[in-house]
Design a protein around this nucleic acid. Structure first.
Lengths: 168, 168
DNA sequence: GCTTCGAAGTTTAGAGTTGAAGTCTTCAGC
DNA sequence: GCTGAAGACTTCAACTCTAAACTTCGAAGC
């Protein structure tokens, strides 16, 4: 009963032993994909931790920067984009407010609404993360030629379009 | 302030606007990867829900089936493989026990240990999930030729090896 | 103008996770 | 064989998320 995870090939062999009608080539793609994503998440998580940031905080910073100056969004909008409930958003903002990453004020044009803004500290944190992340991503892909990178991107996007169609 | 997520290309353009030193080709691969994995997780999650199973339960069933007959593991082993703490494992097992998916008994060879076993119901659930999942995965890849599938698998595995090396 | 309905956030209760402390069992040294 | 240390799981408290009830504000109908 080893504690370590079996290698990808071992795992696929095991699946086939337990369930015969399985296309090994399909499994190879799907399982490599999910393992890769999980390990990349671990790597990103460690990087964030060195900057004293949680993954949850990073997600919110990203959305705020991506709307562009003046870096403001309503909580409901962020929640929808991140796939969270409004309640979770309220609590996240509370914590980020305490950490000095964002501001929260009433929208004077429609006082039901609230406006979340990015602080200079938040903007600076975003930049630090981007620097680390892009270095890591470059390292990750350094063995792939330009052609291979393009090819990989194309193939992934074809799958992405298909799964998106499936979800609608 | 649109609620919808920007398209992949839009998103990369935005990143470049906010952070100049970014390789768009690298971003395309990395972002396609994470979007694809997230959406596939949503799709799998919906399938599991139709069988009355949670993602957490599915992970545990998978580990138990993968060790092969007689489908037994120690809690600590499952926890390590899933990247969970022992405490979380205890509670998951509690719930799965109540759902009739697994059994829990003391290991008589070493009474510190506990043995988690798969019930027939658990085994049957696993099979049902596999049938649904493999149909979905085949659908997902149906546009890709055999060569493209092999290529995609190879490229992903090269990235996987690299990120694994990075994490050690 | 008053009422009612809908929209946006917040609050509250419940489920699942983590980290730390606690319990029980085994094993090595004496 | 007794004692202390280490290992495996459980218990407990704190945290984060979801679902649902609640509050506040704005707009439409009469």
């Amino acid at each position: 009963m080893s504690d370590r995870q079996p290698s990808l090939d071992e795992q696929i062999a095991i699946y086939q032993r337990e369930y015969r009608d399985l296309d090994p080539q399909v499994e190879r793609v799907v399982n490599a994909l999910s393992r890769l994503d999980r390990r990349m998440s671990v790597a990103y998580g460690r990087q964030l931790a060195t900057l004293g940031l949680s993954g949850a905080e990073w997600e919110v910073l990203k959305e705020l920067v991506m709307v562009g100056s003046p870096y403001q969004l309503w909580p409901g909008t962020i929640a929808k984009r991140l796939g969270l409930t409004p309640a979770a958003m309220t609590h996240r903002i509370d914590r980020m407010l305490a950490a000095g990453l964002v501001t929260r004020e009433r929208d004077e044009e429609n006082r039901v609404r609230v406006i979340i803004g990015l602080t200079d500290d938040g903007r600076e944190k975003w930049l630090q993360v981007m620097r680390q992340a892009s270095a890591f991503e470059e390292y990750l892909l350094q063995d792939l030629s330009n052609e291979e990178r393009a090819q990989l991107g194309d193939l992934l996007i074809r799958l992405l379009d298909r799964v998106s169609a499936h979800l609608d």
